[in-house]
Simulated assay, not measured.
Amino acid sequence: MLAVAVAGVTLSGRAEPAAPGQPASELADSTPAPGERALAARLLAPCCWEQTLDVHESELTRELRREIRGRLRRGESADAIEQDLVARHGERIRAAPSSGVLGKVAFGLMLGIAVTFLGVFALLRSWRRAAAQPAPSDVAVAAAARDEYDERLDDELREHGA
């Protein structure tokens, strides 16, 4: 049992070397702080930008996990820690865009759908109005055409004595 504690093996089976100046009590108590795993899963390792902090293994990610654990245990909120890491490493450290970006994208999509719906609605409404208007009857058209030419025809027939 003493050999396991001296070797610094964590409860998860991974060995984490002690950082210079790190108290032995912090190394021995390597159980994750509440919210640590969720926060580490939301952040990318700044050494490669390919894996999240919870799965990547490098000295930098181990330091960041220890920092997160310590800050959470001291009572800092996960959001405040995330904001600080974003300020230090840039927005790229987030594994997923912040909710502000997602909100803007969702708003844009909803706005586009609404405009499309309104355009289709207006088009269908104009078609319905055009279909609802009474078409001029063939009799009325024939009567209007007959009246215009009928007088001329009657005049010519009178001239010829017919």
Rank of each mutant, 00 (worst) to 15 (best):
A3N: 10
V4G: 00
V4I: 14
V4D: 04
V9T: 09
L11W: 10
A15G: 08
P17R: 11
A19Y: 07
A19G: 03
G21Q: 03
P23R: 14
P23W: 10
L27N: 05
A28T: 06
D29E: 10
S30P: 00
E36V: 01
A40C: 15
A41R: 15
A41K: 12
L43I: 02
L44C: 07
A45P: 01
P46K: 04
C47N: 05
C47K: 05
C48Q: 06
W49L: 09
W49H: 10
W49C: 02
E50G: 01
Q51C: 04
Q51R: 15
T52Q: 13
H56C: 15
E57K: 08
E59V: 10
T61G: 00
L64R: 02
R65D: 01
R66F: 08
R69E: 01
G70K: 11
R71W: 03
L72V: 05
L72D: 04
R74S: 15
G75Y: 07
E76A: 09
E82T: 07
E82G: 06
L85E: 03
V86D: 04
A87C: 03
A87E: 13
R88M: 04
G90K: 05
G100R: 13
L102A: 03
L102H: 08
G103E: 07
L109K: 08
L109M: 13
M110P: 00
L111W: 09
T116P: 00
L118K: 04
G119E: 05
V120I: 13
L124D: 10
S126Q: 15
R129H: 06
A130L: 12
A130M: 06
A135C: 03
P136W: 03
A140P: 00
A143P: 00
A144I: 03
Y149I: 10
Y149V: 11
Y149C: 11
D150Q: 12
D150W: 10
R152D: 08
D154K: 13
D155Q: 14
L157M: 11
H160Y: 12
G161S: 06
G161V: 03
A162R: 12
A162K: 05
A162Q: 07
